[in-house]
Design a protein around this nucleic acid. Structure first.
Lengths: 153, 153
DNA sequence: TTTGTTATTGAAAATAGATTTCATTTAGCG
DNA sequence: CGCTAAATGAAATCTATTTTCAATAACAAA
């Protein structure tokens, strides 16, 4: 996972911007929040609340897991952080997908939750190259696109 | 969600193939399993175990949710069904992703769980077209590629 | 600085989703 | 039919997430 700023450099520019954002909206800047903010701002990539908690405790030992959940919810409301998936497992059938020529993916509205399916994502060539380069035997892929639907804009 | 076969048509070809698959491996074909099999084979698209249960009960009223979980696990072991995500929420920061030129995605080994990151998924053009066609203001996307890593093959 | 107000916190309780246990049922065989 | 082991449903358990609540600490005003 790529790190933008080493721990020694302290807070990233991004985390500073977020702090201003919170202050401007009247939220208090606590040690707990700073720890989560800086942790979230320091890496791309998805992490579970537990992983975030483990990382953020290097910045503030007393941080509780509950506060991580709450801070993530706050950052999500402010559109600074996004939940890439909910806490529910989801299944689909390989074969049913293969029966269609070019399968479908999901376009999800972040505001109203409306889901639109769209076909053929034109990834085949990219995936073939990826397979050649990494040696993985690629079996399936899953693409989720998030945005705002026309009604909610 | 597209349906391949109407309910009146009864069992789909795909479901029949799956039944043979189970029989060949010595698994028993119960009403409960048939109901889940036919339900999974009848649609593409991700569903939660609860949704699958609700749908499958139209085929077999007495079906329990636990059996849905168990049957999905079985179908997964036989590589007929795939879990597109686990029961844990995952978050990432929009802004951190935007700071990088071309962001990273994940290549996951279904057997050992090894995760490899890869850059730039060449989706930009597709997404621009999608935005134009649907009117969605696209904000982010998330791509997960599943396969078997070289060691596990 | 010190003080007072109130948002925020952590711990524990409550809830929800997924898995395991176990007594009962039933598919598939003779 | 009957037998037997595999499969089921209900309840118990486990794990992830959310809510509750008394204690704490941020920060505005003195």
């Amino acid at each position: 996972m790529k790190r933008f700023f080493s721990k020694k450099e302290g807070m990233s520019t991004l985390a500073k911007i977020w702090e201003d954002h919170l202050r401007a909206r009247g939220y208090r800047l606590t040690k707990a929040r700073r720890a989560v903010l800086e942790t979230m701002a320091s890496e791309t990539g998805h992490r579970t609340p537990e992983e975030i908690h483990r990382q953020a405790r290097w910045r503030y030992r007393k941080l509780g897991l509950v506060t991580v959940y709450r801070t993530l919810a706050l950052l999500e409301r402010l559109n600074l952080v996004q939940r890439v998936h909910q806490g529910k497992m989801r299944c689909h059938s390989f074969a049913a997908v293969r029966l269609e020529k070019g399968h479908h993916h999901q376009l999800i509205c972040r505001t109203c939750g409306h889901v639109e399916e769209f076909p053929d994502c034109a990834l085949d060539r990219t995936l073939r190259k990826l397979q050649a380069r990494t040696g993985f035997a690629i079996e399936s892929h899953h693409l989720e696109v998030v945005g705002q639907c026309p009604k909610c804009q």
